[in-house]
Design a protein around this nucleic acid. Sequence first.
DNA 1: GCCGTTTTCGGCCCGACTGTTTTCAGTCG
Length: 576
Amino acid sequence: MRRIENIEVAWIMSEIADLLELKGETVFKIRAYRKAAKAIANLATDLAVLLVEKQLETVPGIGKAIAAKIEELLKTGTINYYENLKSEVPFGLLEIITIPGVGPKMAQELYQKLKISSVDELEAAAKGRKIRELPGMGGKTEMNILRGIEMLRSGVGRTTLGIADALAEAFVGFLRVLPGVEYAGAAGSTRRMQESIGDIDLVVGATETEKVIDIFVRHPQVKRVLNQGDTKASIVTLMGVQIDLMVVSPEQYWSALHHFTGSKEHNVRLRELAHKKGLKINEYGVFSRDDDSSLPVSGEADIYAHLGLPYIVPELREDLGEIEAAQEGKLPELLELADIKGDLHIHSDWSDGVNTIEQIAGKAAEIGYEYIAITDHSKSLGIARGLSVERLTMQNEYIREMNERTTGLEIMSGIEVDILANGDLDYPDEILAEKDVVIASVHSGFRQEEAKLTGRVISAMKNEHVDIIAHTTGRLIGRRDAYAINMEAVFEAAVKYGTALEINSSPDRLDLNDKYVRKAAEMGIKICINTDAHDIARMDEMRYGTAMARRGWLSREDVVNTMEKDRLRRFLAQRN
DNA sequence: GCCGTTTTCGGCCCGACTGTTTTCAGTCG
């Protein structure tokens, strides 16, 4: 039987939750399946491995019943319970509840009264004014349904961290200068630096809240106002990104910022802790349950302090162990952007980059780096003007001369060598031996089967000249899935051969992702955070890669390019 | 269905906005 990926199991658990919801099951059971789905999606270890080791039930959120269903799925390829549910609930209803504004209750009602079981049927009924005939529904309900269907089809969907971050920054700048505004900031998954963003959350602390909302919804970037109240509003921008704004009084700002930064799971855990301490936490503050009196909050750290916890940074707030670590005083000392001393994966105009090595060096000096590596493409990558052996030798010489007349910044001569479809590297060893930094990566044969692709990457890792594997899974966020690669095996090889793995900082890649980063570091694998910039403007994307490292719980010691120059040299020389 | 330094049974976070209602359920985050 084919191998079932964790993400597929997570998907099925989430679909079971949806089906149970449509059946009107108790919310706690539904919540349990949702929680399990999330926990599984966040695992960096294959469920199959956990199953063999009888460790399934050690995963928080997975108990006896769900563990048994996972075992059944992995062994037989199906879950009886799930199949039965699917036969009880019309499949189309699952799609109907993905329409914004349409939930399980409405879907059930529409199905029972009007026999609606697909989005198309729903659209026809709304247009035909059939829905207003039902109790509790009216003309506005029909409008909302049609609008929701349009949103679903127009792909108001997830966006990359890069776009969300820039958009949030622009709106925060706009809000910050409005009259009466004391604080404005981005919250939500953008602030937590999640790899993709569903909608942008903004929080404002202001003396005149309604005025701020009023101006916000009339911003020129606003295509549509989804809802608007006294303290909250949601809009969709011209680019199709949803932005939610919450406006509170300046005193309430930190509680609101914390609340909307989330994650939801992290907040739920905190509120449970608060409950046990006789406290209540919401977006307006921290309160005593006895007399409703409020406790002082003049920064997010105060909220944690009231719970007896040290401050937890936004990147860790996922309920993936950070609360337990905080309780035990074992939070990691996270890497900071300022710890990064250089970028070891940059393309110049010698291959498919747009800037000269001089311009790249200028930008690096501006950032304050101690070193960079120029790593152009290798000869087989014709589409990217990969360097012939002759041009590569010329580039070596060119960089050597540049270093002689440059002070402060060291430019290393590197290469991003292709791992060819047959597993060979694109240059012979004696050429690779001349380079300071050798990065190896896959740019072809994406569709090969898992064993073959994994074998290619591992054989590159075996090569003593290869220092770093770049964008190891090959995924492009929202556009291309990771290729079939056995990451367990790659990690084992990285440990065995001492090869470092890259976090590619491009918001389109973020590869390795946070969960793999965390797993790799736990195994003692060194991580290198690079931008893979083809344009000097994108050398600033280092902060996204650093954010991924922080989300993966990395300290400075875990990261190759936090080393000062001489130590880095020794590290690279070890691998030759 | 999960979970337990108060619990193996009885809990399981908190509030805003909307539409259709006269007091609230559904949906969302």
